[in-house]
Amino acid sequence: MIELRGVKKKFGEQVILDGVDFVVQDGETVALLGPSGTGKSVLLKHIIGLIKPDAGKVMVDGLHVARLKRKELAQLRYKIGYVFQNGALFDSDNVFENVRLGISDEAKYADADYSRERVAQVIKLVNLPADVINKYPSELSGGMRKRVGIARAIVGEPKYLLYDEPTSGLDPVNSDIIDGLVERLADELGVTGIMVTHDVRGAFRVADRLALLSGGKIIMQGTQEEFLASENPKVKEFLERDFETPSNAAA
């Protein structure tokens, strides 16, 4: 279980998170919604310990993330796959090496046969052609880079998957492919997922539950039906704005 209690974070004088309370139960997929620049990615980075809160606590499987020692934090990170917004692939390594780095077990990482087999397995799982493993990130399209990022996140068989804007910058067709992939991974791998997005349509398709971050706080959590029925003006404004975007209108 992932649990954030009263999490506050400021960068300089700018308040990003102002007392966030947010819980994700094992097995569910939650979409964290909110306009750009509201701190969704910052919240996600707290969970994996890349950012420490100024106040409050972030607990993963009962462990206080900010208080973990180096080795304990590394052990926790092995249980969490993180899909970065722009892939964050290592541009000097080919796809095989990029994905292989996600194998958390050192013995398995060092085993060339296991690595080759496991990387091929996840590359297939994310619907990429087998020959992509010899390519470099600069030779891939945006959608392929995102899928390689997902492959790297799942290759270590994590318990949790954190997606940071997995469909941002993609055309509607590629967005649908990624949304379908997120949905399929939740079903097939049984991972607990948090997907940061401002794409309401994708969130409705993928998530069991949604949460809306606004003004540094989670202002609403609930199911798709509860969101659509909400009378909260900020929720209504966010949903209406998203459904008015050209891609959604076309859809």
């Binding site: 980075k45 994996i48 890349l50 934090l73 590394a74 052990q75 990170r77 092995y78 969490i80 993180y82 970065f84 917004q85 722009n86 964050a88 692939l89 290592f90 541009d91 780095l101 996600g102 958390s104 790297r152 270590g156």
Partner: peptide, 16 residues
Amino acid sequence: TMRVTEQIDALESLGR
């Protein structure tokens, strides 16, 4: 460049 493109964060997120 690795810092601003989150490659260093990615390395840390993999427990490396």
